[in-house]
Amino acid sequence: MDTKQKVSFEENFTALERLVETLEKGGLALEEAIALYERGMRLAKECTDQLEAAELRVTQLRSGCYESEDSR
């Protein structure tokens, strides 16, 4: 779950980046552009959600010696 989420943040972010470039390059049919736009907005929301959700996560360390939780 953890790993999957992290992978998908990078993937979402990269996909979003590519999508913006495609849309900015232009030359698309209107329907195509709207579809891309909607997909981009979904990706952006997913990215933001992932960043938000991670805010609540406490990083777990492997070492047994280190017990300090999120100490902010």
Binding site: V20, E24, L28, L30, A33, Y37, G40, C47, L51
Partner: peptide
């Protein structure tokens, strides 16, 4: 930095919107 990342994501959203508006405007 995730705040920077969030800003970048927002910026991409703005660019998406701008690109689409531009396209519609051209049409």
């Amino acid at each position: 930095d995730r705040f920077d990342l969030r800003y970048q994501v927002e910026n991409k959203q703005r660019r998406l919107l701008a690109a689409l508006s531009d396209l519609v405007g051209r049409r």
